[in-house]
C-alpha cells in the first residue's frame, strides 16, 4: 500500500473508485493493463488506482474502446477490482477509463469533490446495485422473419437484419404487466436508474432497469422477481444480475443532473 505515489514516465493513474475506509484485506485482483493495484489516502478518502500506459488509456482510449478484445479485458479487470473492494467496504466506482496524469492532479480532483463524495457515500451506503432484464419469449420461432432479399456484403446483411428488429421490440414494449412489474420494483428499491446503453439491442429484450437495493431488502427483490416470473411463465423470462457495485448511482460530473 502506497501512501505516496511515484510518478512513472509515460504512465497515467487509472482510478477504479473511491472508498471511505481502507479494508483490512487488500484486493488481490490484477488491475487493468495487468497493473498492480494501489490504495492512496487522499483528503480523508481512499483512492484505488493503477499506473497504466498513457498511450493506451489517455491518447488512444477512444480507439481502444472500439476494439472488443481490448475493451473486454480492461472492463472485466475494472469490474473485478471494483467488486473485490466493494465486498469489503463501500466504494464509489469511477467511470471506466478515468485517468489522471499525476498523483497531484488526482488529489486536486478528489479534494475538490469532497462534498459530493460524502453525499454519494450516504446515497449508496448499505446497498448494492442489481440489474433486471425481462425478455419476451416468442412461441412462433418458426415464423421469425427472415431476410428475403439477396445480400451482397456483410454490411447489407446487417442492415437487412436491423430492418427486422423494430417490430419485435415494439411488440414487447407496451404492456400493463411490465408497468406493474416496474412499480413493484420501485417499491423495493431505494432508487432506480436507466441502464442498457450496451445491451439494449439484445433479442427479445422488453424491459431493463438498474436498482439500488438495501442489502436487507434482497429477499424482497427476489420475492418480486419470483412472483412475476411465475405469473409470466411461458411468456417472459427474467434475468437478474448482481450484486454489483453501485455503478449507476454515483453522481455524474459537475454540470450534469445528479439525482
Amino acid at each position: 500500500m502506497a501512501a505516496e505515489l511515484t510518478q512513472h514516465d509515460d504512465r497515467v493513474l487509472y482510478l477504479y473508485g473511491i472508498s471511505e475506509l481502507l479494508p483490512a484485506d487488500l484486493p488481490q485482483e490484477i488491475g487493468v493493463a495487468l497493473a498492480k493495484i494501489e490504495a492512496v489516502e487522499c483528503g480523508g478518502v481512499v483512492c484505488w488506482v493503477s499506473w497504466v500506459p498513457g498511450i493506451d488509456f489517455e491518447r488512444n482510449l477512444a480507439r481502444n474502446m472500439e476494439n472488443l478484445d481490448w475493451l473486454a479485458e480492461a472492463s472485466v479487470a475494472h469490474q473485478r477490482v471494483v467488486s473485490a473492494i466493494a465486498k469489503q467496504t463501500e466504494i464509489l466506482p469511477a467511470r471506466f477509463g478515468t485517468v489522471f496524469r499525476s498523483g497531484t492532479s488526482l488529489r486536486q480532483h478528489v479534494r475538490g469533490r469532497t462534498r459530493h463524495l460524502k453525499r454519494d457515500f450516504e446515497r449508496v451506503r448499505g446497498a448494492d446495485e442489481w440489474g433486471v432484464k425481462v425478455f419476451g419469449i416468442t412461441m412462433q420461432s418458426a415464423a421469425v422473419p427472415k431476410i428475403q432479399s439477396k445480400v451482397h456484403s456483410g454490411k447489407d446483411y446487417l442492415k437487412a437484419k436491423a430492418a427486422l428488429r423494430p417490430k419485435r421490440r415494439e411488440a414487447a414494449g407496451t404492456d400493463g404487466d411490465l408497468k406493474k412489474f416496474q412499480e413493484a420494483l420501485n417499491r423495493v428499491a431505494r432508487e432506480t436508474a436507466k441502464v442498457g446503453n450496451i445491451s439494449s439491442g439484445q433479442r427479445g429484450l422488453a424491459f431493463q432497469t438498474s436498482l439500488l437495493i438495501k442489502r436487507q431488502d434482497r429477499k424482497k427483490l427476489e420475492s418480486v422477481l419470483r412472483k412475476f416470473s411465475e405469473s409470466w411463465e411461458n411468456r417472459r423470462r427474467i434475468e437478474c444480475t448482481g450484486p454489483w457495485p453501485p455503478y449507476s448511482f454515483v453522481s455524474r460530473a459537475e454540470g450534469e443532473r445528479s439525482k
Binding site: L71, R95, N197, S248
Partner: peptide
C-alpha cells in the same frame, strides 16, 4: 454485455456509437 452495461452506465464517453 452485462459488465459493459453497468461499468459503462455512467456515461463513459460512449464514443459509444462507435462501440
Amino acid at each position: 454485455l452485462d459488465i459493459l452495461d453497468h461499468v459503462l452506465n455512467q456515461g463513459v464517453i460512449l464514443r459509444g456509437n462507435l462501440i
